[in-house]
Amino acid sequence: MLFNLKKFIGNLMMPLPALLLLMGLALLLLWFTRWQKSGKVILSLSWLLLLLLSLQPVSDRLLRPLESGYVTYRGSAQIDYIVVLGGGYTFNPDWAPSSNLLGNSLPRVTEGVRLYLSHPGSKMVFTGARGAKTLSNAATAALVAESLGVPRNDIIILDRPLDTEEEAAQVAELVGQKPFILVTSANHLPRAMVFFEAQGLHPIPAPANQMAISSPLNFWDRIMPSSMFLGHSERAVYETLGSLWQRLKSKPEEY
């Protein structure tokens, strides 16, 4: 219950629902009260913020600092475990396996498979609990890895954790003090590393799903608002809020 409440409140604080709520408030003021000037100001500012957060130069400027801390892992040292953290998913057995991984999940799994292929003898570890009337997050990601050629006996499923903190605790029971590769989205990796190192673990960071674009773009891609770039802004807000919550929960000496 507490986990669901945390997710609900967190989602309300994302740019799109938060700005839509503000716009709704503005419309109520304009239609049903005498607070016309306040309604106009709130509506105008909400619209402007939605526009700015949907533009590539703004959204990727917000996201890039979160993604710049770690580079793509290309090491070849012997590693026993490659841990791939869970993300968005659903489960429909009639779909292609990869279609069940939503948003940030598929890039995490494909990067994990790439690293598995370059580290013979390693095991892939997938984390993530069960959603509403579906397979677990971990099991769904494992099915995708199998469809890409990873043998089932090289896959370990940890399907109890609800969030990153719980993922770190369960991985600790499995790997002990052995170094392991930790695969998650580049923008999520800084926060994930804090959780895993707090468990006394030795994760090797392997960012996936880099989103902030620094390569050349067509000028129309830079000046036209896009739902994709609004999603980049959302990730920046989500991880910033997550890091603030992580710091509030942690002891001062941990930082």
Rank of each mutant, 00 (worst) to 15 (best):
L2F: 15
K6Q: 13
K7N: 09
K7I: 14
M13A: 15
P15M: 10
L16N: 02
L16A: 15
P17G: 06
L20F: 08
L21H: 01
L22Y: 01
L27A: 14
L28T: 06
L29D: 06
W31N: 05
T33K: 10
S38W: 14
V41R: 15
L43N: 13
S44C: 15
L49W: 14
L51Q: 10
S54Q: 11
S54V: 10
L55R: 10
D60F: 09
D60Q: 08
D60Y: 07
R61F: 11
L63R: 14
P65Q: 12
Y73E: 08
Y73I: 06
G75S: 13
I82Y: 12
V84G: 04
Y89V: 01
F91L: 06
S98D: 09
L101F: 04
L102P: 00
G103V: 00
S105Q: 11
R108L: 03
V109A: 02
T110E: 13
G112V: 05
V113P: 03
R114P: 01
Y116W: 15
L117M: 07
L117A: 10
H119F: 02
P120F: 01
S122A: 15
S122W: 07
K123T: 12
T127V: 09
T127R: 05
K133V: 12
T134V: 11
T134L: 12
A141N: 07
A142I: 01
L143N: 11
V144M: 13
A145Y: 04
G149Q: 08
R152F: 01
D154A: 15
I155F: 04
L158Q: 01
D159L: 01
A169E: 15
Q170I: 11
L174F: 05
L174K: 02
V175E: 09
Q177I: 00
L182G: 03
T184Y: 04
T184A: 09
S185Y: 13
A186L: 02
M193Q: 02
E197L: 08
Q199L: 09
G200H: 12
G200P: 09
H202A: 14
A208G: 03
N209V: 04
N209Q: 09
Q210E: 12
Q210H: 13
A212F: 06
L217Q: 15
N218W: 05
W220E: 11
R222I: 09
R222F: 03
M224G: 00
M224P: 00
S227Y: 04
L230K: 04
G231V: 00
G231R: 11
H232M: 06
S233K: 03
A236E: 06
Y238T: 01
E239L: 05
S243E: 11
S243Y: 12
W245C: 01
L248R: 02
L248H: 03
P252Y: 00
Y255C: 04
